[in-house]
Write a protein that binds this DNA or RNA. Sequence first.
RNA 1: GGCGGCGUGGCCGAGUGGUUUAGGCAGGGGCCUGCAAAGCCCCGUACGGCGGUUCGAUUCCGCCCGCCGCCUCCA
Length: 465
Amino acid sequence: MLRLHDTATGTVRPLELRNEGEVSMYVCGPTVYDLPHIGHGRANLTFDILRRYLSFTGLRVHHVANVTDVDDNIIKRASELGRTEPDVAAEFEDRWWESMDALGDLRPQDVPHATQYIEDMVALVGDLMARGMAYETPDGVYLEVSKVDGYGLLAQQSLESLQAGARVEANEDKRSPLDFALWKKAKEGEPSWESPWGRGRPGWHTECVVMSLDLLGEGFDLHGGGQDLMFPHHENERAQAVADGKAFARHWMHHGWVEVEGTKMSKSLGNFSTLPDLLARCDARAYRLLVLRAHYRSPIEVTPETLADAEKALARLDGLARRFDVAEILARTPDGYVVGGTPPATDIDPGASAAFRAHMDDDLDTPGALAGIFELVTAAHSAADAGDEGEGGRLARTAAVLAAALGLSLRAADTVVDTESAQLVAERDEARRTRDFGRADALRDELVARGWTVEDTASGTAIRR
RNA sequence: GGCGGCGUGGCCGAGUGGUUUAGGCAGGGGCCUGCAAAGCCCCGUACGGCGGUUCGAUUCCGCCCGCCGCCUCCA
């Protein structure tokens, strides 16, 4: 059974499922007003890895991730660009999925949009008003945080200490600086919807409560996001559910972020690189590998150096696919997604597989799991070098299956060879046959100049890119 | 100010109270090869500082130093 760190308790504890055999997970998605950056890539890779691993262990996973398509940032961006909010949101949502697809992330089965849930949100706010948990001010409706049991759970702080640290706000109509907007009354020209408190739009924290409960139901298994969402976003989601008498997420998972020279990459600091830029520069699998190499709660540095390092490590894995026929070992789930498969137990190494699972079950110890895969790579080559091709193949297959369980596919070299290069290869083989090594070396240089990596194998010259 | 995290060999990055090493990259030596490439084998004896607990601490405790994060939109 998977043990995961739970922010609500601050401990690593078993992920106790509401329904046996089935995992319901809700992940906070993007506010679509700009291109996704590298940190979003890590976030999605982290949950993709979790999801694939859960599937790999035989669980059915219901993965929901929202898209926030109404929000202050979108309004601001639309006005800057002189375009409508829905137009801006639609464009950046498209760009979002392009990047996530390129990273090899499985799409969530459900992608609710805030604008589709306005009525439900209004209903929730009305409920909270009726229960006396919320109050109206001239500019909106606020949740009265001091009335919520256990407020501060995810921040791991008491209400008092949160209050002590809260910054003084201009808004004097709020009863406490910690109270947050459930409904924001519209200013002139802002997108707005009808409500009992006048035209306006929902506060950010409300959509996730309504949508997660609608699609996954009360007491769903797992809610996740970046560590910066613990407070106030997730705290405030939970507060609304509790205030409304609903059972909310059973387990909270938060991952660390991407850093640049030791500092958090974030939009407000402006020190971010976009995901499309990254993906144009390197193999998407290398970024996945980079993410896997660190524990999900640790920060990672994404630099040209660490990416280059990951690409070299990836080349070693691909080397396995060149030697053994294990490229693209994958399987499909009932809903059609390609995930790491579980081939017949006799076909893969049970010890390695068990060790892999032990690492993953220990709060997703992907670095440990990956180390095991690299050990299999060495073992597979060793066995084959010693003449035991069968054993080598079995170990290689095991490595490929386990890598696939992390969403990492191995690739044999590009086999599309143009005719001229193929001609050079043939000539070089002939030169080597006649032991004309000067000519053979010249031909090799020519191939290298054309961008090929040249290797001599038992069956002659092999080239790859 | 409140709360939390981090400091590991050239680099990235796990982990553990003690006997045999995470793993990757880079580097050195060897094997293989016509030469390479790929691959295999061997090599580095690291854990911020000062105390304490202990037979023994990188691993537990305390203090200190340094770095970072949340408390405001943020993956």
